[in-house]
Nucleic acid binder design. Structure first.
Lengths: 239, 239
DNA sequence: CGCATTCTTGACTTACATCAAAAGTAGTGG
DNA sequence: CCACTACTTTTGATGTAAGTCAAGAATGCG
């Protein structure tokens, strides 16, 4: 149960021992990857998927003029390119924001899971559907929320997701992203991010020093962000 | 094979007769829904999924102040809330933009498919993963593309998707959305949409009269949009 | 210590929003 | 078939959130 993916899955539904073993058995090998490295390249044709065991990665699309849009952030236990199992050709890039420990899972073994473990298959499917729900929520931020509300929303999301895998202590967590990265997530310029982080700090709802964020007033922060955690599906259900 | 979902699946991988029958057998009943009606409400707990047989629907999130963000548009053959099969509680709303013919598919029958037809399960899974890819592409539009490029990108996407289910004749298709809807898709105001539709018309790459769009210069339109169709996975592969 | 990022702030510009109102289009019913 | 209403499209005038350019300060790293 050191495997954070198992923690993550067990947050959504009960897992049998057999299913836990099936997940462990799917892993072919473990690798370390340095910060800044590209884990998956857009256009690549893959025969394995990557499971993030520890670290932060970003799922992004890069435009011709060099600007980029980050579509989601991933943390311990996220099956970051489970997509490639059915997509075959990747439509986006995945980069490591920090040093990462990853597990390589051959598509052949995932196929076996779909043939033998329908319930586990549904839970993995759920994982990709939650990713889509996160994209939708980000779309709302970029399209309709103010810069300040978008930042607040991101902090609420990361707090809950990190909490779910045990990476929060006393309302405090590490978010190793630069303000340039934040701009690429929220569709904003660096300067505008900087000014709105400042405004958010001035509310006193959070303390944000370096890469450490501490939430001081969850109620008012989530109110400001109009945050509703439903999309993260953080409840145990028979699925 | 009247079922447009089967056309859509067959565009991505070969389907056996048994699988085709399994899809047909999953349908419990067919309903008609009037334009403007809400098909699925945010927060609803469902025990069936909806397959769109004919019509246009929008997947959207509604904010407190009444503004909304549309996260994707759906057409004939889209399994519009297959998500709910694993999510259980919906995080967004689905509205009918036109009159729609829909099929009701009980979750019980989908569960049976996951137990008996692993390959068909992977194809359905692929459907939800393509939805996520569409969200990502829209995120790029809203976050990083100009209003004009975003509009052009949307037209390219809808052209290819409608083409894939046989709803295009000679570069021409019907897109029954108002400029207010377009604003909600691209995170823009009605006025700004109107001005950019005008600019796009002036390029001569398209003709857009009422709800009918005709593409006159695909190369330059897709160039303007920086459109890459990879994300739609419109190729047959063993999945 | 020196170099490279990242953060911060100021000055100025621009894409897009808001407000307002006219003109076009479509559906309804008498 | 026309009159009525409701919605949609279009345009102008003006305001504002966010972008760009630039440069100094802080931070971190070899």
């Amino acid at each position: 149960m050191s495997q954070p993916l198992l923690i993550k899955l067990a947050r959504r539904d009960e897992l049998s021992d057999e299913e836990r073993q099936a997940v462990e058995a799917a892993i072919a090998k473990i690798d370390m990857v340095a910060a800044g490295r590209e884990l998956v390249a857009e256009g690549a044709r893959l025969n394995h998927s990557i499971l993030l065991i520890e670290g932060f990665t970003a799922r992004c699309k890069i435009l011709r003029d060099g600007t980029r849009q980050i579509a989601s952030l991933h943390i311990d236990g996220d099956f970051i390119d489970l997509h490639s199992f059915v997509l075959k050709v990747m439509d986006h890039t995945i980069v490591a924001l920090t040093q990462c420990r990853i597990a390589i899972v051959p598509h052949e073994r995932l196929k076996l899971i779909t043939e033998r473990y329908p319930h586990l298959t549904r839970l993995l499917w759920l994982n990709t559907v939650i990713d889509a729900a996160i994209h939708r929520e980000w779309l709302v931020s970029v399209g309709r929320r103010s810069a300040q509300a978008s930042l607040a929303h991101l902090l609420c999301e990361m707090y809950l997701r990190l909490h779910a895998v045990g990476k929060v202590t006393e309302w405090s967590f590490v978010l190793p992203v630069t303000q340039a990265d934040l701009g690429d997530m929220l569709g904003l310029s660096i300067v505008h991010v900087n000014r709105n982080v400042k405004k958010l700090r001035e509310t006193g709802f959070i303390v944000w020093e370096g890469s450490r964020v501490t939430i001081r007033d969850w109620d008012r922060l989530s109110e400001l962000a109009e945050f509703d955690p439903t999309y993260l599906s953080l409840n145990v259900e028979a699925r």
